[in-house]
Simulated assay, not measured.
Amino acid sequence: MKFNQAITLIDQANKKDPNIEEYNGVAYPKEYIYGVRMSERLEVFLPNAPESLRLAARCQHICRWEIPRNAYPMDRVGYLTWRNDLKKLHAKKASEILSSVGYNQDLIDEVQMMLLKKQLKKNELTQAIEDVICLVFLEFYFDNFIGKHKEDKIIDIVQKTWVKMSEKGHDAALALSFSEIGLAMVQKALA
């Protein structure tokens, strides 16, 4: 089946990530575990998600380490340029893999549209992947973020994250199990 072949190739690419993340005592390549988390969270958020969305979720950070943040100026313009270049990389890598297993161009274009974040708030697939990205951040990466930043930056990021999400995304976020400090930061940001 094309879907399983594509997931295998995406995972193989992401298992090459030299950055390691430990989770429940097991070391994983960072972007591989991120892709798995995206797929798992999508399954909970939208169990009947179309195939294109399921593929886009798994490709969300494909080969992200190939464009390191420190290759750009450490300012807002540098950050935004880096993020834009990453989106293009993810869309290109996804296209190559999906094409190699025989997906048609319409599906590939749909996956690329989601990875490039086109029509956010207007296209339900792009919105769904954005919701899942935000949920994965809040569930798995938020506490680490809290530990590295000052309260005003944390509140700003939560507020910016919230604006990107749909009402369904908000409901799912509020149902997550936050740490005590995480919940306090979310509550302050939404007050």
Rank of each mutant, 00 (worst) to 15 (best):
M1H: 09
F3A: 04
Q5D: 14
Q5W: 09
I7K: 05
L9V: 06
Q12L: 13
A13M: 12
N14A: 06
K15Y: 00
N19K: 11
E22G: 09
Y23F: 13
G25P: 11
G25K: 06
V26G: 06
V26L: 10
A27W: 06
Y28M: 08
P29I: 06
P29R: 07
G35Y: 09
S39R: 15
L42D: 09
E43D: 11
V44K: 13
L46W: 06
P47V: 11
E51F: 10
S52L: 04
L55T: 08
A56T: 10
C59Y: 08
H61N: 12
I62C: 05
I62Y: 09
C63P: 00
R64S: 11
W65I: 13
I67P: 11
R69C: 06
A71K: 10
Y72I: 08
Y72R: 07
P73A: 15
P73I: 05
M74W: 00
R76W: 08
R76D: 11
R76A: 12
V77K: 07
G78Q: 10
T81R: 15
N84D: 03
D85P: 00
L86H: 11
L89A: 08
K92W: 09
K93N: 03
S95W: 00
I97L: 03
S99H: 03
G102P: 02
Y103P: 02
N104G: 10
N104Y: 02
L107R: 05
Q112F: 03
Q112A: 15
Q112T: 06
M113N: 07
L115R: 01
K118W: 00
Q119N: 13
K121C: 01
N123G: 04
E124C: 03
T126K: 00
I129L: 15
E130G: 07
D131R: 02
C134I: 02
L135E: 03
F137Y: 15
F137K: 12
F137P: 11
F137A: 13
E139Q: 14
Y141P: 08
H149F: 01
D152P: 04
I154P: 03
I157D: 05
V158E: 02
K160R: 15
T161E: 04
T161S: 14
K164E: 14
E167V: 12
A172Q: 04
A172P: 00
A172F: 10
A172W: 04
S177T: 12
S177D: 07
E180R: 14
L183H: 14
L183F: 14
A184G: 09
V186Q: 01
Q187V: 02
Q187L: 12
A189K: 01
A189T: 01
A191F: 11
A191R: 14
